[in-house]
Write a protein that binds this DNA or RNA. Structure first.
Lengths: 203, 203
DNA sequence: TCAGCAAAAATTATAGATAATTAAAAGAAT
DNA sequence: ATTCTTTTAATTATCTATAATTTTTGCTGA
């Protein structure tokens, strides 16, 4: 994963930290010290602070005014909250995407779905899963909504990785198939409600 | 409006700028120069940059890597998008709040509603309006959801102020009343769907 | 032994200075 | 005149240094 070198340092740092938090490399509640991180990245702490603000916006860390930043916790409560938000917003996005869905797009989605079935580890499965959702939702053309969904998806992923790590095997995803079938049949509402339920079952 | 002096400078700046953007004092698309703003606040540009990151998260400005920050535009499209997101999320919040709603809370909400009817200008009405929504939604106990709603509400307010400024008079808010009635009658779903429709009619 | 206070260390937040990038302006060539 | 280049100015992003705050440590006294 080569980080685009045109990015600012702040953005590189925020991406790397986000990845670590999602992957569970830094445990929930752990303090993040700006100087230590700055040193690790060979940077000063100014871009680190900016990275913190972004992570805060994504809900991956919480920041208290002069007391530093720590990795956001995720209790069952919080995971459920994220799942419910995702369900509501993804259903909304899908309803708005439906008029713009073409056969080509649905075929792409199906391919992503197959990639998920073939996946050998959690990471690969999650990538395929996210791709699937993105493909069918992006055509809604609502950037703010898509951003919000993306952040929620990230939070979900965190949970996903924490849970199974070791004993994992690819679950053939019936829900995805059902959503595709409904979309192909032009049953938008059906697709949206399956999607909503599907997202919630994660929590 | 005395800004709490315990806040960091960055947070004070972000609040002030947010207020200006919402009030329409800075027009959509206008560039925000960090040095100029820093000078105005008698601060260095470091906290200004952090403020920018927060405003970015709220969707009030958009930032391009080395090309600065500008006030986010809000076309009809974008306003509609915000309205739909609010509808989805506020309905969700209300459904989760219902089990925790007490008569005392509903009375508070009614009072906020009356304050809105009495309001003499847009600002006062908007304050009351926001209070009303907050009172009935906060009991859901989902902090992330409430944050997201708050940001969306802010974006809506921006639209509100831009539109009417001059010719404005307090609309007695039937929807709010209908929501309260439904809640008092224990009809949660009814309340949620009225709320959703209510929020969307803004767009 | 433990609570409470004082000093020291660590950490956050901000300032001031520098490097790197982009936007603007001026001039040259068609 | 208009487009393209070159130079200049403005602006963003970063670094180093300093001030302010919080946390930790170590001591004192009950």
């Amino acid at each position: 994963m080569t980080t685009a070198k045109s990015d600012t340092i702040a953005s590189q740092i925020s991406k790397t930290l986000a990845h670590r938090i999602i992957a569970g490399e830094i445990e929930a509640g752990a303090k993040l010290r700006q100087d230590h991180i700055a040193e690790e990245f060979g940077a000063s702490h100014v871009p680190v602070r900016e990275a913190f603000r972004r992570l805060e916006a994504q809900g991956l860390v919480v920041s208290e005014p002069r007391r530093g930043v720590r990795v956001a916790g995720f209790s069952l409560e919080e995971v459920r909250e994220v799942a419910e938000m995702r369900a509501a917003l993804e259903a909304l996005a899908l309803r708005n995407a439906v008029p713009h869905l073409t056969k080509a797009i649905l075929d792409q989605a199906e391919e992503a779905n197959r990639a998920g079935d073939r996946a050998g580890d959690v990471q690969a499965w999650e990538d395929a899963n996210r791709t699937f959702h993105r493909i069918i939702l992006t055509p809604c053309g609502m950037p703010r909504l898509l951003n919000a969904i993306d952040d929620l998806h990230t939070a979900s992923a965190r949970f996903l990785f924490s849970g199974w790590r070791a004993e994992w095997e690819a679950p053939t995803d019936r829900d995805h198939r059902a959503i595709l079938d409904a979309l192909r049949a032009g049953q938008a509402e059906m697709a949206a409600s399956v999607l909503a339920r599907h997202v919630q079952t994660i929590g």
